[in-house]
Amino acid sequence: MTAPPARPAKGPRERSDSEQGPLASLDVRGLVRTFGPIRAVDGLSFTLHPGELLTVFGPNGAGKSTLLNLLAGALQPSGGEVRMEGRLRSHGDVEWRRSVGILSHRTFLYGHLTARENLRFYGRLFGVPHLEERIVERLEAVELERRGDEPVRGFSRGMRQRLGLARTLLHDPAIVLLDEPYTGLDVHAASLLRELLSSLKDGRRTVVLVTHDLNQGLELADRVAIQVRGRFAHLDQAAHLPSGPVDAFYREVVEEALEEGR
């Protein structure tokens, strides 16, 4: 694990070139979230530097989505703290949510609105400047510019997920959270989405990706965590993973962690 950032600041710092958007480190210390007697997230600590992509693997019920919801500000932690560029996330932190974009297998889109209307709605919630130009840019980036005026309910699952990515990145968030983004996609749609997600590795955005799929998760990862029963049973650089079949290593780590928990 790496040390927390040395330079505390008030928010994500801006690069001199404003076109390149904000940068932010993410520092998590002793994060806990309980649901009754269950500790869904149990004392997690890690630091991500700007531009790093952490992939979190883990079995069902390991607390991966809860971790993302805590990072997104949708859930309040029961203990511990989360900092972005040294700034502590507080309860109801509006500025925090402005710096985060989240994409899950649910797209947060309205079927009866057109693609453009969906983006316009979210753009106004986030206060995106020059919104109409930004919408055109985002639609082009996900190759949906020709379908922008069609209702989303007529879109395929893959198109919806691409539009969901456009929505996620519309406000140029410093931190991007991806929760099982490939769920329900066929091979072609998954490959198209993977190409789009690889554009997130621009050295600017800090990304946390949660997935069951080892191969898809490893393709983009700088660092890898395996979460079991709310804790990280493994956290290291992706390059440090042992050679050989990764699924055997994953099974070994999970089984060992489950054994220790008994």
């Binding site: 997104a72 500000g73 949708a74 500025e95 649910r106 309205y110 079927g111």
Partner: peptide, 16 residues
């Protein structure tokens, strides 16, 4: 509830 849309609003900077 459609496609988790309310979570999209809750994770936006819009005050409750």
């Amino acid at each position: 509830e459609e496609d988790g849309a309310f979570d999209g609003i809750l994770t936006s900077p819009m005050p409750k």
